[in-house]
Design a protein around this nucleic acid. Structure first.
Length: 321
DNA sequence: AAAAGGAGGAGGGCTGGTAG
DNA sequence: CTACCAGCCCTCCTCCTTTT
């Protein structure tokens, strides 16, 4: 009864209402409006069909439906061209701007305005990368995004998969050796290990020799119980073993240890470059060849097109010295 | 007569709704 | 949750109309 040729009759759409009548529009095939717009632009059923990537009969059918709905021929074939009727021209004048508006609304990404937004980003990161990136991040936010906060969370390399999957952190910055499955990864920077020592407590040359290096007492940063991390990393490259090692999970503590004790602290080059001088330490490259350490940004694909996280990742990128 | 383009029917796949 | 059904819309094929 309310359907005619399986469709809603146009006179049943209540045009006096300000609000959208969802029920009525539900039964009106809005694709017909696109068909109409294409017909109006091409003035040809065949070309309009090609424009919408459908076959000519389907467009012909759409035109038949439009004719029924609007109770008007809309397009009259005269020779090789179709001519729009006055009704069609009037409809087009009204509908075309609306379709453009819809297209714009659908294409527009949700915006993220860091200057006015209030939000906390949860950043998984381990000690040495944190010492490099987080201070720069906070400095930038203070100037340009006062409502944005950083929660920097120390996370071991083995643990971040679960935290990303459970949406308990937004972004992880780490050296990740294994395959990450569906997690996204982007190379952030390459890091070289260097070593630092207090020249007034430890008589080593700069650059340090292998003999001096392996004879000394060592300090390392390690988040793990078994002193893995740098040790395991180095042992892949150097045959010799380090004699005595002290470790801390905190790179600042390591630098302070080296300042007060005759020991060699091995750590990321960027941290040393930034902080060694303040602790009165000399910096030397390692006395053997090791590969650079790759530090990546890792995130869950759910935040791929999140404008806020797009912005945050770009900011992190810009904070790498 | 040939070419071009719209219209109509048959058959099939997809989707949303519903019953078990 | 699954299975089934009805309706919709698609494509393919064909026919019709108009023009050159």
């Amino acid at each position: 009864m309310h359907h005619q040729h399986g469709r809603l009759r146009l006179d049943l759409i209540d045009t006096s209402m300000q609000a959208i009548n969802h029920f009525n529009l539900r039964t009106f095939d809005l694709n017909l409006l696109l068909a109409f717009d294409a017909l109006m632009q091409e003035l040809s059923v065949t070309r309009a069909a090609a424009r919408l990537k459908i076959r000519q009969p389907a467009m012909s059918h759409a035109l038949a439906n439009l004719r029924t709905l609007f109770d008007d021929a809309l397009f009259i074939r005269t020779g090789h061209v179709m001519q729009a009727t006055a009704r069609a021209k009037a409809l087009h004048a009204a509908l075309h701007p609306l379709l453009l508006q819809m297209q714009e609304a659908l294409a527009a990404k949700a915006r993220f305005d860091p200057a006015s937004e209030t939000r906390t980003f949860r950043l998984g990161i381990n000690g040495q990368a944190e010492a490099i990136i987080v201070p720069a991040l906070v400095a930038h936010l203070g100037q340009h995004a006062p409502g944005i906060r950083i929660q920097s969370i120390p996370i071991a390399e083995q643990a971040f998969h679960v935290l990303l999957n459970d949406d308990r952190i937004d972004l992880m910055i780490a050296h990740a050796s294994d395959d990450l499955g569906w997690l996204r990864r982007e190379k952030l920077y390459r890091e070289q290990y260097v070593c630092c020592f207090n020249p007034s407590l430890l008589a080593c040359s700069t650059p340090i020799t292998a003999d001096e290096y392996f004879a000394a007492v060592h300090g390392l940063v390690s988040a793990d119980m078994d002193l893995s991390g740098f040790l395991a990393y180095m042992l892949r490259h150097a045959a010799a073993q380090l004699q005595v090692t002290h470790s801390s999970h905190n790179v600042m503590t390591l630098l302070a240890m080296a300042a007060q004790s005759p020991l060699i602290a091995s750590l990321h080059g960027r941290v040393a470059a930034r902080h060694a001088a303040a602790f009165g330490l000399a910096i030397s490259p390692l006395p053997f060849d090791v590969d650079d350490l790759e530090v990546d940004m890792i995130w869950h694909p759910r935040s791929d097109n999140d404008p806020a996280l797009d912005w945050f990742r770009a900011l992190v990128r810009s904070c790498v010295p």
